[in-house]
Design a protein around this nucleic acid. Structure first.
Length: 358
DNA sequence: GAATCGTGGCG
DNA sequence: TCGCCAAGATT
């Protein structure tokens, strides 16, 4: 049997109608592929529309300010994707006159585009015969051919890519690649796949040998470590003080409040008694601590953030700004690209603060 | 090769 | 509550 033909037939009956499948625009396809990296389709769809409404053409993205790009990406996670897209848009505007380049090797050189995304764009937008290997394809082919190399290893990647190239329908790479990914997403699912309804049931090595639940092999992840973030919402009049995160760390490019990070949980007295707080008050003058939240746990993929929010008011207005700092009105905070942790806090806390119940 | 980088949904 | 997962790339 011909794997490619079976996939194509299956795809004709089972494909979802997704917005980025109705375009040949390389820019649109690029946007969709970056958004969908490590992200569910259901979560990505609204961001796809929002992103293209804000930046209809590659040139619009290239000419935008970094803060604008981050604001559109706010809440989607993996923010390096947005920063890299911006860099790449500028480069394409300069080097390719704003026209997205074709050719797998050319595409692969662009920042934020690795082997999968380059293959996806090359095949979807330019119909180039390069096999895509994403998580869906890896899972499907690992099961079908009984590939036991763990996900993420070079050997596994090589073995699966080789198989993907062999089963590819070279007459219509764009359609084929969509089909094989869709098959992994909808039929050859990670958890309890409906093998009874699978067209490859008789040929699937994992199914035949009863190892569907054991493939693909995954290596266990290291335990997630805890970090303790003590945030100070600092207001003077109706402005609050913000600082952009610029270090190589989580949430780079997003804004936050003055932060004291500790290695363990601390009490309010330990915050207002420490050197960091004293330096803060040296800038602001005496602070009135009017509120502190309980511990709020924010889970990242391999970190646990234990956060406490403090609200301190200055006697008068906020101090002069230092580099990387800015202010925003408490009624205009949604114009700022905050991480979800802070976004959630503000959406709950500010209404209470503004109507005087805190 | 291993660690890092977010968020939301699900069992 | 928690681990796993979802169209990966970078360092």
């Amino acid at each position: 049997m011909n794997v490619g033909n079976v996939l194509q037939t299956w795809y004709g009956k089972n494909r979802r109608d997704l917005p980025w499948r109705n375009t040949g625009n390389a820019y649109h396809i690029w946007v969709s592929e970056i958004i969908l990296q490590q992200t569910r389709v259901s979560q990505g769809i609204s961001y796809y529309h929002r992103f293209l409404k804000k930046f209809p053409r590659l040139e619009d993205l290239a000419r935008a300010r970094p803060d604008e790009v981050m604001h559109v990406w706010k809440g989607l996670g993996y923010y390096s994707r947005a920063r890299n897209m911006h860099v790449t848009a500028i480069r394409i505007l300069n080097e390719y006159e704003g026209k997205f380049p074709s050719g797998y090797e050319n595409i692969l050189r662009l920042r934020g585009i690795g082997p999968y995304t380059a293959a996806a764009i090359a095949s979807f937008a330019f119909n180039e015969p390069v096999p895509v290997v994403d998580g869906n394809v890896y899972r499907f082919l690992a099961r079908l051919f009984g590939i036991v190399h763990p996900v993420g290893t070079a050997a596994g990647k090589k073995a699966v890519t080789e198989k993907a190239g062999k089963v590819m329908n070279r007459k219509n790479p764009a359609l084929h690649n969509q089909a094989i990914m869709e098959f992994g997403a909808l039929q050859c699912t990670p958890f309890r796949p409906p093998c009874h309804a699978c067209p490859f049931r008789k040929d699937c090595l994992a199914y035949i040998t009863g190892r569907v639940n054991d493939l693909p092999v995954k290596q266990k992840k290291p335990a997630s470590e805890e970090r303790y973030f003590n945030y100070v919402l600092l207001t003077g009049q109706l402005d609050m003080l913000l600082k952009k995160r610029e270090k190589q760390d989580i949430w780079k490019g997003l804004y936050e409040f003055p932060l004291f990070e500790s290695t363990s949980q601390i009490e309010p007295g330990q915050l207002t008694g420490n050197e960091w707080w004293k330096r803060l008050e040296k800038r602001t003058g005496p602070l009135h601590l009017k509120y502190h939240s309980g511990i709020i746990t924010h889970i990242l993929s391999h970190r646990k953030i234990r956060a406490v929010f403090y609200h301190a008011e200055t006697r008068d207005s906020l101090p002069a700004l230092q580099p990387g700092e800015t202010t925003v009105s408490v009624t205009n905070w949604e114009s700022i690209a905050f991480p979800v942790l802070i976004d959630k806090f503000l959406s709950q806390y500010l209404p209470l603060f503004l109507n005087g119940s805190i």
